[in-house]
Simulated assay, not measured.
Amino acid sequence: MRPEEEAQFAVYVTARRDRVRRTAYLVCGDWHKADDLTQIAFVKLYGAWERIRDYAALDAYVRSCLMRAAIDESRRPWRREQSTDEVPDGPAAGTAGDVDDLADLVADRDLVRTALRRVPRGQRAMVVLRFYEGLSVSDVARAMDCSEGNVKSQTARGLAALRSALTELTQGAGLG
Rank of each mutant, 00 (worst) to 15 (best):
T38N: 13
R68D: 02
S164Y: 12
I71A: 09
E168Q: 13
G97Y: 14
R2A: 03
R16T: 00
R53M: 04
P120T: 10
L105Q: 00
F9Y: 02
V27H: 05
L135V: 03
A115I: 12
L166F: 06
A92Q: 13
E73V: 06
L102F: 09
R79D: 07
T155I: 04
S153P: 07
G174M: 10
Y132E: 06
A34Q: 07
A41L: 03
D110L: 06
R80L: 11
Q8V: 02
M126N: 11
A103Q: 13
S147V: 02
A56G: 14
G158E: 15
Y61T: 05
D72F: 11
N150P: 01
G149W: 04
L175P: 05
V112T: 03
R63K: 01
L66P: 04
G90Y: 14
E73P: 05
I52G: 01
Q8A: 08
G122M: 01
V13P: 02
R163N: 02
A173E: 14
D100P: 08
V112M: 03
G174D: 09
R17S: 03
D139G: 02
L129E: 15
A15G: 04
D101W: 15
A34M: 10
V87D: 09
E168C: 11
L166H: 05
A161E: 15
V27N: 07
D139W: 00
D139N: 01
V11M: 01
D30A: 15
Q154Y: 10
A60P: 07
Q154T: 12
R53L: 06
L66C: 09
E168M: 10
W78D: 04
D98L: 01
A48V: 07
D54I: 07
P77Y: 09
D89K: 13
R142L: 13
A69N: 01
D85F: 04
L58K: 02
R79E: 10
D85R: 05
A161N: 09
L45I: 03
R2D: 06
R2H: 04
Q39F: 01
M67E: 14
Q123I: 07
A165R: 10
D72Y: 15
V119F: 13
V27R: 05
A7P: 02
D18G: 03
